[in-house]
Simulated assay, not measured.
Amino acid sequence: MIVRIMGEGQLTLADSRLTELNQLDDELLAEMDNGDGPGFRATLQALLAKVRELGEPVPDDFLEPSDLILPSSDATLEQVQELLSDDGLIPGGA
């Protein structure tokens, strides 16, 4: 799977790793629902850090569409809400 972090680039991530990301995604959704700005910020940072840890950067000349698009680390709660699907940011969650 190709994951794009907005403003950073793309990484390849094994589909099997999505399960590891869903817990953070579920936490992020709960914090957004509760209006927990500091919690949202910390969990977004943790989610992006985990994607960077588990993923492999793709070459800059790689021209394939992203399967999953995540917000940048400085995205606001409102910006992230616009990216949400029924499952959250990561498919298979909530």
Rank of each mutant, 00 (worst) to 15 (best):
M1S: 01
M1V: 01
I2F: 12
I2P: 02
V3Q: 01
R4A: 02
R4Q: 03
I5H: 00
I5Y: 09
I5W: 02
M6K: 04
G7W: 10
G7C: 09
E8K: 05
E8N: 09
G9M: 00
G9K: 00
T12S: 11
T12Y: 11
L13N: 04
A14K: 13
A14F: 08
A14R: 07
A14W: 15
A14T: 13
D15G: 14
D15F: 06
R17N: 01
L18R: 01
L18D: 13
L18P: 08
L18V: 15
T19W: 10
E20K: 06
E20T: 15
N22L: 12
N22W: 13
Q23G: 06
Q23A: 12
Q23L: 10
D25I: 13
D25H: 01
D25L: 06
E27C: 15
L29C: 14
L29E: 15
E31C: 15
E31V: 12
M32D: 03
N34M: 06
D36I: 05
D36G: 10
D36L: 10
G37M: 11
P38H: 03
G39K: 05
F40S: 01
R41G: 12
R41M: 04
A42S: 07
L44Q: 09
L44C: 12
Q45T: 15
Q45D: 15
A46G: 08
L47C: 07
L47M: 02
L47Q: 01
L48Q: 12
L48E: 06
A49S: 09
K50E: 01
V51I: 14
E53M: 06
L54Y: 03
L54I: 05
G55P: 00
G55F: 11
E56N: 02
E56D: 05
V58I: 04
V58W: 02
V58G: 03
V58N: 05
P59F: 12
D61N: 07
D61Q: 09
F62S: 09
L63S: 09
E64M: 11
E64Q: 11
E64I: 06
E64K: 08
E64Y: 03
P65G: 01
D67N: 00
D67P: 00
L70Y: 03
P71W: 03
P71I: 00
S73G: 09
D74F: 13
A75E: 13
A75I: 09
A75T: 13
A75Q: 11
L77A: 14
E78N: 15
E78C: 04
Q79V: 14
Q79M: 05
Q79Y: 12
V80T: 15
V80H: 11
V80G: 08
E82F: 08
E82G: 01
L83I: 10
L83T: 14
L83N: 09
L84P: 01
L84T: 09
S85G: 10
S85P: 10
D86V: 13
D87E: 01
D87C: 06
G88P: 06
G88A: 05
G88H: 10
G88S: 06
L89R: 01
I90T: 14
P91N: 01
G92Y: 06
G93I: 04
